[in-house]
Amino acid sequence: MSAAVTLRPQDFRAELLARGLLIPTGVDGLYGRSETFEGLVAAVDALIGRLAAGDGAEIMRFPPVMTRQGFEASGYFRNFPQLSATIHCFCGDDREHRRVLSCTAEEGGWTAAQAPTDIVMTPASCYPVYPVVAARGRLPEDGWLVDSSSYCFRREPSVDPARMQMFRQREQVCFGSPEGIRAFQARWMQRAMDMFASLGLPAATDLANDPFFGRPGELMATGQRSQRLKFEILVPVSDPGRPSACGSFNYHVQHFAQAYGIQDAAGEVAHTGCAGFGLERIALALLRHHGFVPADWSAALRRVLWP
């Protein structure tokens, strides 16, 4: 194992910045990426793509925003107001424009007339998929599978490079029966564990819950855990003592299907699940465990990433 493993969390970040792998912007959790880092993210993305290749999933790609209508239907703001971000725009005329330009900071400055639009930032890459699948009508007999990926936004500024405000997810989204979703969840957890082993990364699965907001959120979190709906695969990234979730495997029961009106072939409310990977986190885990120069990594590891 490389000396990178023994780095303190703050030194890991400093090293990423000093080597130019991540480019600081002055805002915590918001980084530019170097050619090397992007190459690594692309390799991880392609590797996950190869794992999914035989499944026949429909590829869908969206920009990192979704419709406000779809966002509201999902209940995201109700559960995660602290992570949500909305797109606001100036919709006034030139008189209003002059007014806001002369607003003092106390009056809100240039943002004084910003108003919510019909789009919001995508919190997870699978979110824009549900309304699209719902609008097609009933699912086929065997359900449906979608392969999604996008930049995602979560308002949780942190100096930990493994906790970015904007990052990419690659997610498989499954629509069907409870048995079908549970099988999908188990299949992807096994694939992911095999993938992390092939990447030489120490990975462990754990039962998890989403960071639901407030006291009702605690009840939702305990409910999610007791029903064993969410599993994560954890890999040490910034802090060896506090591993980061690099994969997330979720059974939503009928939450999204109910929210969007997704029906199975018989017209009943369908079940959904997703299996997602944090691409930057996996790239960071590789840099942490194998050193900061991918060109120096073992031939075996390089063959897994760049076959």
């Binding site: 639901f212 009840l219 939702m220 029961v253």
Partner: peptide
């Protein structure tokens, strides 16, 4: 009763 509903019920 969903987990959403349980949170609503609590409130």
């Amino acid at each position: 009763l969903s987990s959403f509903g349980a949170a609503e019920l609590m409130i």
